[in-house]
């Protein structure tokens, strides 16, 4: 993102923090093309058969988008959470299109496929995970957010503990329960 639009991101971010849902959607819409571009770019530098880490994508996109800003730490929370949601949506869209055998119009098909494959290599069905997360949101929105940050943005537990203001050990205990629950749901 260039300097001229950096202010736009900052404004959106401020609105997101104030709880503006429309601004959040706008911010997601802003992040997604960048995620696709990053996927594409990263894929071109990878050997064949390589799978892409979603984490790498989110980090790349994050830097590209906010590279000229200096987000304060508390902003990072909102940015990373939004970026994780954006990543989740992209992957879900991709998985749905794939399931319905529709060709993606973007040139990012291979790159996104590679990201999807990286989950599948770990026995994760992205669509089933999305469903599990959606129901988790209903009764434990915080842990659903944690799951998003962990799974789609690849944040470490230390980072998440700080972001969400949960003691690290509490977070890890909760996470082990959430994982078992998700696994049960997705099985």
């Amino acid at each position: 993102m260039t300097d001229s639009t950096g202010g736009g991101v900052a404004d959106l971010l401020r609105a997101v923090k104030a709880g503006d849902l429309q601004a959040r959607d706008e911010l997601i819409a802003l992040i997604q093309p960048e995620l696709r571009k990053c996927a594409d770019r990263l894929m071109r530098h990878q050997p064949n058969g390589h799978t892409l880490q979603p984490t790498a994508l989110v980090n790349e996109a994050y830097l590209k988008l906010f590279g000229t800003d200096d987000p304060h730490f508390t902003d990072r929370r909102h940015l990373m959470a939004t970026a994780a949601t954006a990543m989740r949506q992209i992957l879900i869209d991709h998985a749905r299109r794939r399931n319905s055998n529709k060709r993606s119009a973007d040139g990012d098909r291979i790159a996104l496929e590679s990201v999807a494959l990286s989950y599948e290599g770990n026995g994760v069905d992205v669509l089933a995970m999305d469903e599990a997360l959606s129901s988790l949101t209903e009764f434990d929105p915080q842990m659903a957010r944690v799951a998003e940050l962990r799974v789609f943005a690849g944040l470490t537990f230390e980072e998440i503990a700080e972001l969400e203001d949960i003691p690290l050990r509490t977070l890890q205990r909760k996470w082990s329960a959430v994982r078992a629950w998700m696994m049960g749901k997705m099985a």
Binding site: Q53, N122, R150, V151, G154, A180, M182, M183, G184
Partner: peptide, 20 residues
């Protein structure tokens, strides 16, 4: 739910995050 959670074979490592 409890039984299902206890029986879930959660892989070690960072599941569901792809291995780094």
């Amino acid at each position: 739910e409890l039984v299902r959670m206890l029986e879930a074979q959660v892989p070690s490592g960072e599941w569901p995050l792809p291995p780094a």
